[in-house]
Nucleic acid binder design. Structure first.
Lengths: 235, 235
DNA sequence: CGCGGCTTTGATGTTCATCAAGTAAAGTGG
DNA sequence: CCACTTTACTTGATGAACATCAAAGCCGCG
């Protein structure tokens, strides 16, 4: 695959960027301009790796468009998916300010656009502007806390409960609809919930048989939201 | 149990406090004095609750002495242990700057002392002092990342692997010794690794039978560190 | 059109939770 | 200090949940 990045550096639109309210509030016009000048908007195609575990950190990334997965290799060498996130929700591994290299890998599940700001500029802005720093702490810790909670929710459920939980998660958090196309393969769901892909598929089949969902390939339609919730809570 | 807090407000020793290097570097003498004046050092006895899930956040806590556990109630109402931490490692839930209330509960596994600083003072210092903010971001995110990784490590192992992993964790991270007293009951280990307490006990018995550990009650001695590592990695 | 990867289902065996029953340890009130 | 109660620990037996293996169909892609 061609890993060359397609860099689009448009005439600056940071001033009206929707991300401003989220992570870049409280900046002066001058600072916004500096970000504008140095930022890069990078495009990634479906399947492309954005950052790799162990790679040195050069920039702070914020997802503008698309969908990404955060993952790593487990002790046994299997891929372990940590989180799946949509724009305005994902920021770089929270360790970008702490450690020199990425702890996890990141790749694009759909064609995606990330806004990349040099890490040193971010540091500089944090040091200079306390309100910005305080806001950033909020954003970073909300992201971390969500990942922690997600892991706990998965761990506390059995197979069926985990499947129900992720279906509800996709439906509510990602697609805001009862019918959607899964952005991931069955195998990836398995890597996400730490179960075998055969049993993930089996559970889908059972949910289909019981009339709780319909599914054709990656398209999922939730028929009985209540039952799915019961399974998620019981499991 | 008497939940009244014993508050010890000594003559100020913040200037020479060991925590300064960790989370409170880069503060002016004036700011250190302000922290000194307003901070409270609270003592908690073994078993005492420090913060409860849902409680409003009033202060930022940093563990000075002792050992604490972070936990919550799972969907099914069971206690789920998120992390066990020793001094210089634990800071308040990272969400203290984001949300108004605690997401998780915190209690003392051993008699402990926490340094408590009003959350508003922390905010003020962050806003005022960028270097302080940057350093705090490092500390907070390192804590979060460690908790995330811990969860992933547990999730990727089977029963025996999880047990081996936590024994190595206690031995290396907490006690720095091959022989130590577990700070938690078998049941709590079960809540930590999301397994049943009966099987936790059974696995301990097997490790004992195979000559990999010795155990008398809560005292654990690791006899064969290498085998324990193999089990941890294979599982 | 043929190859390889993803999906599906069944069969089999392993791992783990649950239940039960008993022992040790630790707190509690007289 | 002892009898009593409760809580933690331990072990075995059983069945449920889940992984693994295998075989076949499907789909996309070169």
């Amino acid at each position: 695959m061609d890993t060359a990045l397609k860099i689009a550096k448009k005439k600056c639109d940071c001033f009206s960027c929707e991300l401003r309210d989220v992570a870049f509030a409280n900046l002066s016009q001058e600072d916004i301009d500096r970000i504008c000048d140095s930022k890069e908007e990078k495009k990634y195609s479906r399947g492309e790796i954005i950052n790799e575990e162990g790679e040195p950190v050069h920039d702070f990334k914020y997802l503008k468009n698309g969908l990404v997965k955060l993952f790593r290799k487990s002790v046994r060498g299997e891929e372990q998916i940590i989180a799946i996130a949509r724009p305005l929700e994902f920021v770089s591994n929270t360790n970008v300010f702490t450690e020199g290299q990425y702890r996890y890998s990141l790749s694009a599940l759909e064609d995606s656009v990330a806004c990349c700001i040099r890490i040193n500029l971010m540091r500089e802005l944090i040091e200079k502007n306390g309100k910005f720093a305080l806001n950033l702490i909020s954003v970073l810790s909300r992201t971390s806390e969500n990942i922690i909670t997600l892991g706990l929710e998965i761990r506390s459920r059995n197979l069926a409960g985990r499947i129900a939980y992720v279906l509800l998660y996709f439906s509510r958090e990602i697609y805001h609809s009862g019918i959607f196309d899964l952005p991931v393969s069955r195998k990836e769901i398995a890597d996400f919930i730490s179960m075998s892909s055969a049993n993930v598929i089996r559970t889908f089949s059972e949910l289909r048989r019981d009339g709780i969902i319909k599914s054709y390939g990656r398209t999922i339609e939730i028929i009985d939201m209540n039952k799915l919730e019961v399974i998620s809570k019981r499991g």
